[in-house]
């Protein structure tokens, strides 16, 4: 007989783990908040220092909003970058919205048009998936800083 798996909620500490495992370690991120507050904790919201992003933008603070829920067979999450200066947005979603694109999809656009495509991740661990997303955001999705 196998040892019973200790029960409990895999979501209990998830946001705090994403915060300490990833968001607090990203130099471009300046603040991290729970939304609406740390008691209800529906979402995490990180803000970027616009001066440290790999492109020129305005003074408003771009944000990364993270909603995540551990469930079977696939964890559910939406990670959304939004730049209020330009209207640019990019999202990595593992939800039920576009089953034609598979389990997860990536979407991006500015104001009106949103483009979507299938997305796969190299990891299964939520913190490591968030690292993949932040890495992709800063290295690929956002254009390089021409002045650098």
């Amino acid at each position: 007989m196998s040892v019973p798996h200790p029960g409990g909620d895999p979501n209990a500490r998830l946001y705090e783990q994403l915060k300490t495992d990833v968001l607090k370690r990203v130099p471009q991120i300046t603040t991290i908040q729970y939304v609406p507050d740390e008691i209800i904790a529906k979402q995490l919201r990180a803000t970027f220092d616009p001066a440290r992003l790999p492109y020129e933008t305005g003074p408003e603070l771009p944000t990364l909003s993270i909603s995540c829920y551990r469930q079977t067979p696939h964890d559910w999450f939406r990670v959304d970058y939004a730049d209020p200066n330009t209207g640019f947005h990019a999202g990595w979603h593992q939800d039920e919205d576009h089953p034609d694109l598979g389990v997860a999809h990536f979407q991006y656009g500015t104001d009106g048009a949103t483009h979507r495509r299938r997305q796969t991740f190299d990891h299964e661990t939520p913190s490591l998936i968030l690292w993949e997303i932040v890495d992709s955001l800063l290295d690929d999705v956002l254009p390089p800083d021409e002045s650098g």
Partner: peptide, 29 residues
């Protein structure tokens, strides 16, 4: 601000050994 180009596939980025994750975490982390 310049226009955003078509982003690359994630797997293209994560193959690199100098990822943000490897720069800011240890194996033990």
């Amino acid at each position: 601000m310049k226009a955003h180009p078509e982003p690359l596939c994630m797997s293209d980025a994560s193959d690199s050994g100098d990822s943000l994750m490897s720069a800011h975490t240890t194996g033990a982390d």
